[in-house]
Design a protein around this nucleic acid. Structure first.
Lengths: 208, 208
DNA sequence: GTCTATAGAAGGATAGAC
DNA sequence: GTCTATCCTTCTATAGAC
């Protein structure tokens, strides 16, 4: 229970993470001071240390929660997974774009601030990211084996698809010429092409 | 002329930019101190200000030169441009991958440190990046009009291709399972698919 | 052209009053 | 739970000797 009006531990901790997420995304982890964060939260700098042991942990928690959210959201989404590989990929593309456009700040941090993690924290985050890549690769591999896809390379296709989809967050503005739905359709179209290369008249092999 | 042995202005300036590039890429602009850079260069912190007016200019120069190098290198490369659009795209893909794998540090900085540029510097850099995107889009548009490509959306195809190609720099290690040549072939294969979507049996339209 | 020394500001984190 | 005050470190940038 809170002892003072208008504040309690859990709530302030949430506000703190939200404020830090916003500021880290905008200026970068190293460029943001604890005093700036405190101002954004509406408390004094010293009070922050009631909710986080230090700045590094704050960064790690933001990234870690983001990746947990991602993995959990996909687990839920893919609980009702279609059987057709092309439909699975479509589900993935739509999911990835929607999820990432909904939390541009956290996405940005999770990609840009890896350098600022301690080595142990870095490993934890990277392994969760790999998990996500593996989920996509599994869909691709299965669809390739089944004959629904014609892949150039399953691992690199997974990397390429995630890179191009996540890239949307770098240029998307809600008021642009395209709605999030338009964008989903266009990227679906591109991904379909990417997983369906017509090998016949191409000089390159299908993999290393 | 240098007045002391082993040093002269131009040379030290080059060494300074190289040291800053390395450190900014590794730890991030905001996290690197002028003292660290000085140590890397092998001089004292104060001496750096003979070669750069401040830290911000140092960052800007690294990015600006990188984009100039990119645009100049492509200008030279495309001086001998094939006439066939598919061959043009192949030339672009190979060029982009090779160029970017050759200078991972500068690429990293040019993407990650945009936030740390002053507004004027930011605009200069962004306009050069747009120039490069426009070059690719022109190839795509032309090939689409000519019937060599079947595009989902020319602008977004340009974004997607650049994002997936540049993404190589985030995972490529010289000692991995794939050589730079293997990688070029695989990405060529994927890009060919991406620009050749077979619209017949697809529910989505070709653009907004 | 490089050094040492330092000004002056800002950083992360803690102590203790309330 | 939050504040003020503060410790100690580190930062960018400059001044002036050599």
């Amino acid at each position: 229970m809170a002892r003072k009006s208008g504040s309690d531990g859990k709530k302030t901790a949430r506000i703190l993470r939200a404020a830090a997420t916003k500021l880290f995304a905008q200026y970068g982890y190293a460029a943001v001071s604890m005093r700036q964060i405190a101002t954004e939260v509406g408390v004094q700098a010293g009070a922050l240390y009631l909710y986080t042991p230090d700045k590094q942990t704050l960064l790690f928690q933001i990234m870690d929660r983001h990746l947990d959210d991602l993995l959990n959201a996909w687990a839920e989404e893919s609980a009702t997974q279609p059987t057709e590989p092309m439909a699975q990929i479509e589900q993935f593309v739509r999911f990835h774009i929607r999820f990432h456009l909904d939390r541009v700040d956290a996405v940005f941090i999770a990609y840009m601030e890896l350098r600022n993690l301690s080595p142990e924290n870095f490993e934890l985050i990277e392994s969760k990211r790999r998990q996500y890549e593996d989920l996509l690769e599994a869909i691709l591999r299965n669809g390739g084996k089944e004959g629904s896809f014609s892949l150039c390379d399953s691992r690199l296709s997974a990397y390429a698809i995630i890179a191009m989809l996540t890239g949307v967050t770098t240029w998307y503005r809600g008021d642009g010429r395209l709605s999030a739905n338009n964008i989903e359709e266009i990227y679906l179209c591109m991904v379909r092409g990417l997983v369906s290369h017509s090998g016949a008249d191409q000089p390159s092999s299908t993999g290393p």
